[in-house]
């Protein structure tokens, strides 16, 4: 290619190592090593009143898999994450399709509006949902005014509130990959299908949709893994009634100070999430 990259001198190799050093130090020191420490912790015995006891045991995992409470919360989290993923797909695909087909100017503005909520952060958006769904919130006051209900109904601290909030927060992660996939489709392919006699609906079902599949797959897996490990939003919109698996890790870690058990929950979550990421990457590679 170029002189710089074709024949690296010792000095250039040093320069590269030097350039990569700070970032690699951060990722290794603050991500890889702590992850290994977490795995180690999950194998330590828990002695009440003592943060760490270095006796090795599989007891934490035995407790997780032996206690129906933990498994029920995990199953519940997986179930709700599947619903959130399906809803995000149903809502996200039309948006991505519209963005891919509209004028460049409008696309720029609308893409910015997808991106903006992501930058605002989840705490503010969770609060927005509390204002909308609360006892005196937007929905209840509208329903009361129209006479559909006589007394405020409980919308907040329900499964539906958590599903709604998570869908809203994770929707951009669905829209962006699908939009990228749709933009990569050569317009000539669709034109060819139309020229060969396919109706617009047929063209969509047999050409556009299959070609957008990589985006659908990556968006779905991204949304699913983010939902599976959500903590803040379910805690705020679900209250004590709707527990996600991450809430159990938080409770074990910061309320019960049972760090080995918290670490085991963490390892379990990463195992499920890694399986998802592995699927995600192999699905991308398969295309």
């Amino acid at each position: 290619m170029t002189a710089l990259s074709a024949a690296p001198t010792t000095r250039q190799r040093q320069a590269r190592a030097l350039a990569l050093a700070p970032a690699l130090a951060i990722t290794t020191g603050a991500l890889i090593l702590p992850a290994l420490v977490m795995v180690a912790y999950s194998l330590f015995a828990y002695v009440p009143g003592k943060i760490t006891d270095y006796t090795l045991t599989l007891g934490n995992y035995a407790r997780l898999f032996g206690d129906s409470f933990y498994l029920r919360v995990l199953a519940n989290t997986v179930e709700m994450s599947l619903i959130v993923t399906a809803l995000s797909l149903v809502l996200g695909f039309p948006v991505a399709l519209f963005l891919a087909r509209t004028t460049p100017r409008l696309r720029g503005l609308l893409a910015y509006l997808v991106f903006l909520p992501m930058m605002v952060g989840i705490v503010v958006r969770a609060y927005g949902w509390m204002v909308i769904l609360g006892r005196e919130g937007l929905v209840n006051s509208a329903l009361l005014k129209t006479g559909l209900i006589d007394a405020p109904i409980r919308l907040l601290f329900t499964r539906d509130a958590v599903v709604l909030g998570l869908t809203e927060v994770l929707l951009p992660f669905m829209i962006m990959p699908i939009l990228s996939a749709l933009e990569k489709i050569d317009p000539h392919v669709e034109e060819a299908a139309r020229a060969l006699g396919a109706s617009p609906a047929e063209t969509f079902w047999r050409v556009t949709l299959p070609l957008s599949l990589p985006g659908v797959v990556s968006g779905s897996l991204l949304v699913f893994s983010l939902s599976l490990t959500a903590y803040a939003l379910p805690a705020l919109l679900g209250g004590a009634r709707v527990k996600f698996i991450a809430a159990l890790a938080y409770d074990a870690m910061l309320v019960g100070y049972n760090w080995p058990l918290a670490a085991a929950i963490g390892v379990l979550m990463s195992a499920v999430a890694s399986a998802v990421i592995y699927l995600y990457l192999s699905a991308l590679r398969g295309r």
């Binding site: 991500l31 090593l33 702590p34 983010l226 599976l228 490990t229 870690m253 670490a263 990463s270 999430a273």
Partner: peptide
Amino acid sequence: YVPRVLIAMALLLV
């Protein structure tokens, strides 16, 4: 790509 909760938990341990 690593969920924030896991990063946070691992960091606390260290």
